[in-house]
Design a protein around this nucleic acid. Structure first.
Length: 470
RNA sequence: GGAGGGGUGGCAGAGUGGUCGAAUGCGGCGGUCUUGAAAACCGUUGAGGCUUCACGGCCUCCGGGGGUUCGAAUCCCUCCCCCUCCGCCA
């Protein structure tokens, strides 16, 4: 979310930033709308002022008993009234149109963010460790897991369809162990406060962190049957008469009618399932004014995440890489503006530390402008080496959003030296994704006989178990 | 699900049609006093927008939206959220 005034003062910087992200420059269109809005506002405020002062005079006239004057003034105000009323509608319309545009514009990249259209332009920042050597052809995680009888995609598909998995026995415990280990490190060693947060949130929370309104199709929402019925009822009330007529005349069937009506209905869900705990953790400061002394706020949570993966049809369909549901340890920092850039480096290191402890080979890449998420100005992905797949795969993504989310949430801080309350800066990162960490452990610690060696740091969480299978 | 009560400035909490953008308290800021601090006392202190070189002027905002009225924090409708009791329930 951007400050209109800032766009007004820096239209070129705004457009250049958008261009770097591959988004059509739109400062001119926005500013023209803004110009029209202000022009209208002048007229409206002028009328409001006159109305206010006349109303005050009417009050005085009535209290001093001059009814004749009061009636005369009422006549004068009547014309203004009509104009003010329609003018207020117009103002709301302007505001609605402008904010609808602003809500869908992504954040601008930092100067240091690499330019590029997609992931091929990402820049490797560092590479830690080295590829493990295998005396045999390393298998992919699902081959190993299925052979052990501990990773069951078919059972999951029977109840839930594609992109789900059932883990059993030691692999189920391994998943839990990884989550416990990671959040313990982040809380006891890196200063993050553990939180248990809602997994279902309202629209405004999703708007605050930027998942809505633009990325509705990526999200899941739970609904009670009562609420679905109510939404359908509302949609039907808004149904255009010609659709209804088409149904009555038998040109479309009931199903088509409902589908077409729903297509046009406003989306207003009871809840959304969080696609990441970033949503819940970042919204902890929404509509709050925190004391500067409390910053930085560092919070973390181990939660399930839910993603529709609408744009990823056919991609990563095998194995646990891309699931509708997975666990993740999320890190969120709330900082002052001058501390946010350094906090990004710190956060990335907090994510990397997990891989170091697990002795996994990885690299850090700076995402290019075309590959970055909606709210980010700069993102570092941490990619772990998967020998079975013979590739690096994203296991963490750490982003600094500056005040982009804070504006949407109205999250501010009170400065120690007083004055206005500026917006906070927000950062989020995974520390790490549990499912993908499990994949990395399984593939990197696999043995020739199909067993998996449990990494040292996880053994306390596995009741001392040193080996899975074999 | 049923019944009721609420949503007001950083916080607490008054305010049922006209000098109310809003009493009072706390907190914050400035000052007096003090070696210093505390206490006490005095003063000051909401946000957003439009406009102005500036001083300033004006508009909007008392959960959101709509309505009644010359005029709404105050009356009506509606939606959202919170709380209490009952029912159901992990």
């Amino acid at each position: 979310m951007f400050d209109l005034k800032w766009i007004r003062d820096n239209p070129d910087a705004f457009d250049n930033g958008l261009k770097r992200r591959g988004v059509e420059p739109c400062a001119k269109a926005i500013l023209q709308l803004d110009e029209e809005r202000r022009e209208h506002l002048h007229k409206l405020q002028d009328a409001q002022q006159k109305r206010n002062s006349l109303s005050k005079q009417i009050g005085h006239a009535i209290s001093s008993g001059d009814n004749e004057l009061a009636e005369k003034l009422k006549g004068e105000v009547a014309e203004l009234k009509a104009f003010v009323q329609s003018g207020e509608d117009t103002e709301r319309e302007f505001n609605g149109r402008i904010s609808a545009i602003l809500y869908e514009i992504p954040n601008l990249p930092l100067d240091e963010t690499p330019d590029g259209a997609d992931e091929s332009a990402n820049e490797e920042v560092r590479r830690i460790g080295k590829r493990p050597a295998f005396a045999f052809a390393p298998k992919q995680h699902f081959e190993i897991g299925e052979a052990l009888g501990m990773m069951d995609f078919e059972a999951a598909a029977r109840m839930s369809g594609a992109r789900f998995v059932v883990l059993r026995g030691a692999l189920a415990r391994l998943e839990r162990a990884i989550g416990q280990f990671m959040i313990d490190v982040q809380t006891t060693e890196h200063g993050y406060t553990e939180c248990s947060v809602p997994l279902m949130v309202k629209d405004h929370a999703m708007i605050g962190t930027g998942q809505l309104p633009k990325f509705m199709d990526d999200q899941f929402f739970p609904s009670s049957s009562g609420s679905r019925a109510r939404l359908l009822g509302e949609a039907l009330e808004l149904a255009p008469p010609d659709r209804e007529a088409a149904y009555r005349d038998g040109n479309i069937n009931l199903r088509e009618l409902v589908e077409q009506v729903l297509e046009m209905a406003p989306t207003k869900e009871d809840f959304w399932l969080i696609p990441t705990a970033e949503v819940s953790l970042t919204n902890l400061v929404r509509e709050q004014i925190v004391d500067e002394a409390e910053l930085p706020i560092r919070v973390t949570a181990l939660t399930p995440c839910f993603r529709a993966e609408a744009g990823a049809a056919g991609k990563d369909t095998r194995g646990m890489i891309r699931q509708h549901q997975f666990y993740k340890v999320e890190l969120v920092s709330i900082t002052t503006p001058d501390a946010s850039r350094a906090e990004l480096d710190r956060m990335t290191e907090c994510a990397e530390e997990i891989l170091k402890r697990l002795d996994l080979h990885y690299r850090v890449v700076a995402l290019s402008t075309g590959d970055m998420g909606f709210g980010a100005r700069l993102t570092f992905d941490v990619e772990v080496w998967l020998p079975g797949e013979d590739a690096f795969r994203e296991i963490s993504s750490c982003s600094v959003c500056d005040d982009f989310q804070a504006r949407r949430m109205n999250a501010r801080y009170r400065r120690a030296e007083g004055g206005a309350n500026p917006f906070v800066h927000t950062l989020n990162g995974s520390g790490l994704a549990v499912g993908r960490t499990l994949i990395a452990v399984v593939e990197n610690y696999q043995n020739k006989d199909g067993s998996i060696t449990v990494p040292d740091v996880l053994r306390p969480y596995m009741g001392g178990q040193e080996r899975i299978g074999g």
